[in-house]
């Protein structure tokens, strides 16, 4: 004779349900809202901020980390993490330069994508099939790939240049007034969003992040899904590195240090849960732009030293994470 009464899992009151829904909206679109507010405030405060050339500059500079963050969003949505993207980004740039020197634009695209994709394949295999912790696997990837970059550039002293005109054009030409990388990044966001929300594979990504054990029991191909996101992330980081090298006409071996952290920050600021299961690429887009705008506004102030810039970014990130946590609790996630 049990007298226990199970509490309902549902919202207790209408107000609570409304509060939860509001928190969900804030979590998803908070970054976009703050981005707009910040842009308005910045436009009022700094006359040099709301100019076409400044905005072009912001979106161009954001396009490379955005492509990296697209891949990162997929990884984080499964509850994983990819710390190797900064190193893979550098590798992509260096290999694009080498590849284009003998193979033109085909070699300049194929070589970095194949190698960076292979990095993703190895990491994905170790995480998904050998069931190793993503943090450790990709930390090892960060170190090993950075070492590889140094190895192929004589310890980083050699900066291979991109002279192939077609590859240069890919990185430097303009479409509708913006750099081609911006177009590629936007296309990436759109394609990724369609994949995530409208394809079976994308739904599986969200399901695996939402509950890995439930996904297993529901017969979803959990390992294949986890494997795929690391390959996607490797490809995205390699492509971003290639485009960045094409943009600057050189494969600089020291780029991308700490890029993994800003990519993760952007994804989390964009409302993707670090535990996985919920998030969007639109949010990631807003997150990347937000970080760039903050950086830009700090530059507008001019009097802040570069070390203080990091402090401001760090404090801002901390505030966002606290905010996200509060929102998650409000929604009882």
């Amino acid at each position: 004779m049990s007298i226990a009464v199970e509490p309902s899992a549902g919202p207790t009151t209408v107000t609570q349900a409304r509060r939860e829904r509001l928190a969900g909206v804030l979590q998803g679109y908070g970054a976009a809202i703050v981005l707009v507010l910040l842009a308005v405030v910045g436009s009022v405060a700094f006359p040099t901020f709301p100019t076409l050339s400044n905005f072009t500059n912001i979106v161009t500079q954001s396009s490379f980390p955005l492509i990296v963050a697209i891949g990162m969003t997929f990884v984080i949505l499964t509850g994983g993490i990819d710390l190797s993207v900064g190193s893979v980004f550098a590798l992509g740039g260096v290999l694009a330069a080498y590849g284009s020197s003998w193979g033109g634009i085909v070699g300049g695209l194929l070589l970095p994508l194949v190698v960076c994709g292979t990095v993703g394949v190895v990491q994905g295999f170790l995480v998904a099939y050998a069931k190793m912790a993503p943090f450790i696997v990709t930390l090892a990837g960060l170190l090993a790939v950075r070492g590889l970059v140094l190895a192929v550039t004589s310890g980083g002293s050699n900066t291979p240049l991109i002279t192939d005109p077609a590859l240069q054009a890919l990185g430097q030409s303009h479409v509708a007034g913006v750099n081609s990388s911006v177009v590629i990044a936007i296309v990436g966001v759109i394609v990724g969003t369609v994949l995530l929300t409208r394809s079976r594979g994308g739904q599986s990504v969200l399901a695996v992040g939402g509950s890995e054990s439930a996904s297993t029991y529901m017969g979803l191909p959990v390992a294949r899904v986890k494997f795929s996101v690391y390959v996607i992330s490797g490809l995205c980081a390699g492509l971003a590195g290639t485009l960045n090298a094409a943009y600057s006409s050189s494969g600089v071996p020291t780029v991308g240090v700490g890029l993994e952290l800003s990519a993760i920050s952007a994804v989390v600021i964009g409302g993707t849960l670090l535990v996985g299961g919920r998030g969007s690429l639109i949010g990631t887009l807003a997150g990347v732009l937000l970080l760039s705008v903050i950086q830009n506004l700090i530059n507008q102030v001019g009097s802040l030293s570069s070390s203080v810039q990091s402090v401001v970014s760090g404090v801002f990130l901390a505030i966002v994470v606290i905010f996200q946590t509060v929102l998650s609790r409000t929604q009882r996630l």
Partner: peptide, 21 residues
């Protein structure tokens, strides 16, 4: 299963059709 083995964050319909939408 004893504990509901579905994805809490996804909708009822998504849960029913997950993997065979």
């Amino acid at each position: 299963y004893q504990e509901v083995n579905l994805i809490p964050l996804m909708s009822v319909a998504q849960n029913i059709f997950l993997g065979r939408e």
